[in-house]
Nucleic acid binder design. Structure first.
Lengths: 126, 126
DNA sequence: CCTTGACTTCGAGCGCGCTCGAACTTCTAT
DNA sequence: ATAGAAGTTCGAGCGCGCTCGAAGTCAAGG
């Protein structure tokens, strides 16, 4: 059970169906045997996945890979595009973090005021 | 159409159904009229949403808010918890960014080698 | 008055990424 | 030889966060 690669057998089969993994070698009895290369590829996919790359794009990437080494440039472009998205995500998250931190600070102030017996402002939530 | 607050009327009603927005004032003809306070609250919600807070937790927050000012501490705790998650997300995204950058660098090297007429390594994807 | 268009409720449907279960086959250990 | 664990295919289901459509109600302009 190659699902020890950090993912369920169900998911593994799903990835195959989804065209992310080219059909893997089978035993005489039709059972899948994952090679080292298969596992490496899977882990690469999982890393892309973790970074929020949608399945559809991973499929594109996988298709390019299937077409051979002459698609390296195209694959690189995909990765770069993904990297750009990742950058954006991080930047956005950081902005949100700032807003949230401000909100929390003001909440703390409210609490302090309350403990001091001062009336609260209503609807201070925005 | 208060949906000009950056969200569709459908979504607005969905949020009400979902318990994120307490039922808003209606005209004689049963039509919703959003007050400034409603709009402010909505925008606060949307900000939480954008930062990836799940609806379920927003619902919790909304419920606490409905219970009055004595729940401020609890709400603060929720926000802090969310902040922690946001921090984690950012940290994770940064790690992914590093991995991806490394991958891209190696791809560029592959491309350069190819242009130089050197054979490619197969399965270099992990 | 009457059209027209924005509102209402309700429940169904969607896109994503799995996740699961049924029914069947195959492998493994005794 | 055989029990039972683990594999197979297939299609359905789920959880999230909307999104949409049908059928009806209401408001405002001509």
């Amino acid at each position: 059970m190659a699902a020890a690669a950090g993912v369920s057998a169900h998911t593994l089969r799903y990835y195959e169906r989804a065209g992310l993994i080219e059909p893997v070698a089978r035993t005489s009895g039709n059972q899948r045997r994952y090679s080292q290369a298969d596992i490496a590829w899977l882990q690469f996919l999982l890393r892309l996945r973790e970074t929020g790359m949608p399945i559809a794009q991973m499929r594109e990437y996988a298709a390019l890979r299937g077409e051979g080494p002459e698609t390296t440039a195209a694959r690189l472009a995909l990765l770069e595009q993904h990297q750009a998205r990742l950058h954006e995500q991080i930047a956005l998250a950081r902005r949100h973090e700032k807003v949230l931190a401000a909100k929390i600070t003001s909440y703390r102030a409210d609490l302090a005021a309350e403990r001091a017996g001062v009336d609260q402002t209503e609807g201070a939530d925005a």
